[in-house]
Computed example of a mutant assay.
Amino acid sequence: MATGWPQVGGLWVVEWRDRPGFLGWCALFPFDNNDQLEMGYRLLPQAWGQGIATEAGQAILNYGFSRLELDTVIAVTHPNNGRSQNVLKKLGFCATGAVTYHGQSVVSFLLTRTNFETLTIA
């Protein structure tokens, strides 16, 4: 993985805050071979509905906008994944429409630095 991972972004393990236990991962990685980064996450079912995806997303967005000085971050979800879409909306992402990504129809979301900073300050 070290030789194939992009130069920007990253992959982080998500664990319980107060005890050991792998819950999933979150990442920033190149979106569809262009200059933009995509935020992604996958969590085990026992982590769903507890705010963990939102907390992990906030942490990697802080990293992306503060340390990497990104202007935008993209995310995509399956059209029927309302829970993940709600996480993205809580984080400040706005839906930009349906796109085809790796051969599947998905809903695309965009978060700008300005929107992120506005939500973080509020």
Rank of each mutant, 00 (worst) to 15 (best):
A2D: 08
T3P: 12
G4M: 05
W5G: 00
W5D: 00
P6Y: 05
V8P: 11
V8H: 12
G10V: 09
L11R: 07
W12Q: 04
V14Q: 11
V14K: 12
W16P: 05
W16M: 10
R17A: 11
P20E: 13
F22H: 06
L23Q: 08
G24S: 10
G24M: 01
W25S: 03
W25V: 02
W25L: 03
C26N: 05
L28A: 06
P30I: 09
P30D: 01
F31M: 07
D32I: 05
N33P: 01
N33A: 09
N33H: 03
N34P: 06
N34S: 06
Q36A: 05
E38G: 13
E38R: 14
E38P: 05
M39E: 01
M39D: 02
Y41H: 06
Y41T: 00
R42T: 06
L44P: 00
P45G: 15
Q46M: 11
A47R: 07
A47C: 05
G49H: 07
G51R: 01
A53W: 00
A56W: 04
A59M: 03
A59W: 08
N62I: 14
Y63A: 06
G64Q: 13
G64T: 12
G64S: 07
F65S: 12
F65Q: 10
F65H: 13
L68T: 11
D71C: 04
T72D: 05
T72L: 10
I74G: 07
I74D: 01
A75D: 09
A75R: 02
A75T: 05
V76L: 03
T77L: 07
P79L: 00
N80V: 08
N80P: 15
S84Q: 09
Q85I: 12
N86C: 10
L88G: 03
K89Q: 11
K89E: 09
K89T: 14
L91V: 14
L91E: 06
G92T: 12
G92R: 11
G92K: 08
Y101V: 06
H102W: 14
H102F: 14
S105C: 11
V106L: 03
V107G: 13
V107N: 13
S108Q: 05
S108G: 13
F109E: 01
T112V: 14
T114R: 13
T114L: 13
N115E: 15
N115G: 10
T120W: 15
I121W: 15
I121D: 07
A122M: 14
